[in-house]
Structures are given as structure tokens and as C-alpha cells.
Amino acid sequence: MTRIDTRFAQLKAAHRTGLIPFVTAGDPSPEHVVALMHALVDAGADLIELGVPFSDPMADGPVIQHASERAIAKGVGLHEVLGWVAAFRQRDADTPVVLMGYLNPVEIHGYARFAQEAVQAGVDGVLLVDCPLEESVVLQPLRDAGLRQILLAAPTTAPARMAELCGSAEGFLYYVSFAGITGAAHLSTGDIAARVADIRARAKAPVAVGFGIRDAASARAIAGFADAVVIGSALVEQLAGAVGAEEISARVHAFLAPIRAALDAD
């Protein structure tokens, strides 16, 4: 079993909803990424989505765009990101790490080389936003190396295609709660509950819901019908400008603790 599968099995056994924070690697500070990752786990993260900065993040709103621009300006690339995951693994062997980003940095790095280095660093999966199932043949070296490809499903996904995604899901299936970009505030839990329930009944993997979840109340609303919730832009916004490991850690705890508590409340 992979770390991702183990973690979701543990959550299921404990009847808990998973908490998946997203942070852009290198923001607010390249020096403190590893400390930030440990702080996320200490504050209740079950799995970490680590964003690989890209110059042209077409699916992201302004918060993550700006975080990516700041990280790129500080020279952050895949090489640095993999190094941070390896450093994180020295003290944490259990928390799954999924790299989230866009295809071009991986393509330019080379798929086979990336697969080998990512597994060696302790990465468990990838979520490449602009690589839908139809184009995933290029990711075969990643699958061969044991990395999970996290697929997205969306409100616009047609029924036949949804069946295909449910059948191909591995690790977890990431359901995008509304048609839009990250960080927008469109969340309408009533509309998605039935949809997510249907997907959960059919998907070969657990279902995480993301986009639009920004606090304890919205996380709690989703927790009723998802295996995990993903929180990205709201956290990245909280962390922007934080200086030093202590301040980063304090902001992570202040932001995530109420969300963790809301997810765990009966």
C-alpha cells in the first residue's frame, strides 16, 4: 500500500474527514518550506499538496498566481521542490505528499528523470492540472515508478466521462466544487452534495473536494459528504509575507486549528 492509500484507510477506520492543505513551494520563503510542511502536519494535515510554481498557472486565481510569481522570482524550480520533500521525509515518513502544478516543468525536466527523482525524494503522487486523462500517456514513467496520478473531476464533467474518471482514479479523486479558478468564492454546498455522493459511490478511490473552501464553516459543510477537503488559496493568502519559521508556524496553527476542530466535531 502506498502512503496515500494507507492514510485514507486510517481516516476511514477512524471515521474522520481528511484535511489537505495546499501551499506554494517557496512562498512565503524558500528557506522555511520544510518547517512549513512540518507545521502543517502538526496543525492536523493528513496529506500535503505542495504546489510547484509555474509561470502560467491558467487554472489559478490571483492569490496562487502571485505566490507562484514570488517563488519563481526567488529561483524555485522542481529541483528545489524535490530537495525540500526529501528533507521533510527525514522526520516524517508517513504523511503523503502530492506535488501539484502544471505539465511543462515536468516535461522539461524529463518524465523518466522526474519519476526517479520524485520517488527517491519521497513524493507519493502528482496532480498536474493541465494533464487530463486523455493526455496522461506521457505520465506512464511516473506510474511505472509508483507515483499516483491524482485526477480531477468537475461540475462540467459529463456522465460517461465521470464513469471513466471514477474507474481510473487512484490515490484520491479531486472534485473541483465549481467551474472556475482557485480562490474564487462560489461554494454552494447544496449543489455538490448529491454529486459528490454519487462519485464516492462509484470511484475506485476516495474523493477530496477542493476550490472555495476557506474556513471552518465551509470545511465543515463539505465534511459531511467528502473523504477529505482541500484548502489552498485561503491558506496561501494567510501565509503571504510571513517572516521566519516561527511566524509561519504560528499562522499555520491559527488558520488550520479551527478547521481541524470543525472537521473532527461530531
Binding site: V129, P132, E135, L151, A154, P155, T156, T157, A158, L165
Partner: peptide, 14 residues
């Protein structure tokens, strides 16, 4: 070529 887009756009493109 191809269709390297986020899942949300796959249906509108189809």
C-alpha cells in the same frame, strides 16, 4: 497539439 487543459474545460471543448 492535443488538449492540455484543466478538467473543467474538457466538456466545453468537447
Amino acid at each position: 497539439g492535443g488538449q492540455y487543459v484543466a478538467e473543467t474545460l474538457m466538456a466545453p471543448l468537447a
